[in-house]
Design a protein around this nucleic acid. Structure first.
Lengths: 238, 238
DNA sequence: TGTGATCTCTGGTATATACCAAGATGAATC
DNA sequence: GATTCATCTTGGTATATACCAGAGATCACA
């Protein structure tokens, strides 16, 4: 297929696929045509079909499962970072069920950048938990949370607690500094999220403080970018 | 070059380039080796070299200029969305100069989704401005701002005002609802930003309200994702 | 019925090749 | 010194081909 001065062929295929998704012909988690099928359908080489599918994926409209196919991404979830730390509660209010899986729970000693971030002395006892958050079986983000043990003994009984997975999402602290940025998904979190390594995602860091301003908890979240949508309310201080 | 069970070849090239950037061998805005040079250097086909460079680009570590080459991306800028609307002031405090270019300034009448968003009657007079924000000649984001004329006559003299470009960045309103999400850059903003169409970026919407809660201004910003970093402070209300 | 081998389909990697259009450059010319 | 023009380089598009490894279905056999 030759082409002069018009839209690139692979771009036309992208538009076709996007239209099908928008139209509802392809619904959430439905399989997209495979590379080979698209190649035949549009009479292009497989590489061109592949470029088109990769573009749709890069836009966050689809995700791929190795050796299985590409599928339509589910809709975005809203996360109100302003009222913070209640992503789960907020999701519940929207009628969205969230599943949390505790991947790892350890007790470590403060070192490296954590010392500065948490204003904790070297060797301070810290609880560290890694969780994978899903909705309807679809991975949304991975969270690694580091808590200063002594500063929240009452609020948080420690890694042995059964209700651990919910605990984090009841308010811990009084204020939180949040940073959000785009990032490339490293292989490890990408695997957990079922995403391609190094595809674009969202990284979020939260540092929670208590009434006195002392850090309690540092949380690092890695989101599938196309799943995330962050809201906040700003107040013009003057 | 054959390869079994190790890292894919193009990934190794990516790591090599990333190392050079991290080491400082390649500094901000320095040209990366071209596709053909990398192909020769690593003894791979041009397509493989290309994949590597595209991957580096997708990670936000480089940007490409058509027919000129690929260059190392500058460092991220921080934007405090919590205190809002003072991105320029914030940047100044960091010693970063920001340039604003007014691309378009029109007076329109409320219609479509703007009617709902701004709670304005159909046909209400609106000022609409599109600006491109740069730092050191490097495009960062495009903003389209829609202001209800009558609700801010005093604060904002209208599109004829000379100081227009600064005006917006002095607090307008008392609160703002902000939404941040990852997106694919549409061809138009991509061109303005000097980015590839459909690469991943950040989309931000701000709805400013006055003391009474009435909407004043709706702002839609499209950021080069690798340039953005958004911070906020959350308060746990309980 | 259950189990294991096989076969098909999938995306992922890699090469070699070809052409295009426009920026950069420098030589020849005015 | 300024202008024109050819050349080289660049990224972008597109094809054809080849192989790999694993998920899923199927089918033969115990």
């Amino acid at each position: 297929m030759t082409n002069t001065h018009a839209l690139p062929v692979f771009r036309q295929i992208v538009d076709d696929l996007k239209r099908q998704i928008a139209d509802g012909q392809l619904t959430e988690h439905a399989a997209l045509p495979s590379e080979r099928v698209i190649a035949e359908l549009h009479a292009v080489s497989r590489m061109t079909a592949r470029r088109a599918l990769e573009a749709v994926e890069a836009e966050g409209l689809a995700y791929s499962k190795r050796r299985q196919g590409r599928f339509v991404s589910p809709k975005r979830l809203m996360y109100d970072v302003g009222s913070m730390a209640n992503f789960v509660a907020g999701a519940a209010a929207q009628g969205i069920e969230i599943e949390m899986e505790l991947l790892e729970s350890t007790t470590i000693q403060a070192s490296g950048t954590l010392v500065e971030t948490l204003s904790a002395a070297h060797g301070t006892k810290l609880y560290q938990n890694t969780r994978l958050i899903r909705s309807k079986g679809h991975s949304i983000f991975v969270e690694t949370e580091t808590v200063i043990a002594e500063r929240c003994a009452a609020l948080w009984p420690g890694p042995d607690n059964v209700d651990l997975q919910r605990q984090r999402y009841s308010p811990l602290g009084h204020t939180a500094e949040i940073v959000i940025r785009m990032c490339a998904l490293e292989p490890d979190p990408a695997r957990l999220l079922g995403a391609m390594p190094y595809q674009a995602g969202i990284e979020q860091e939260q540092l929670s403080r208590d009434e006195s301003g002392a850090p309690i908890c540092f949380s690092h979240q890695i989101w599938r970018g196309e799943m995330a949508q962050f809201s906040a309310t700003a107040i013009i201080s003057r």
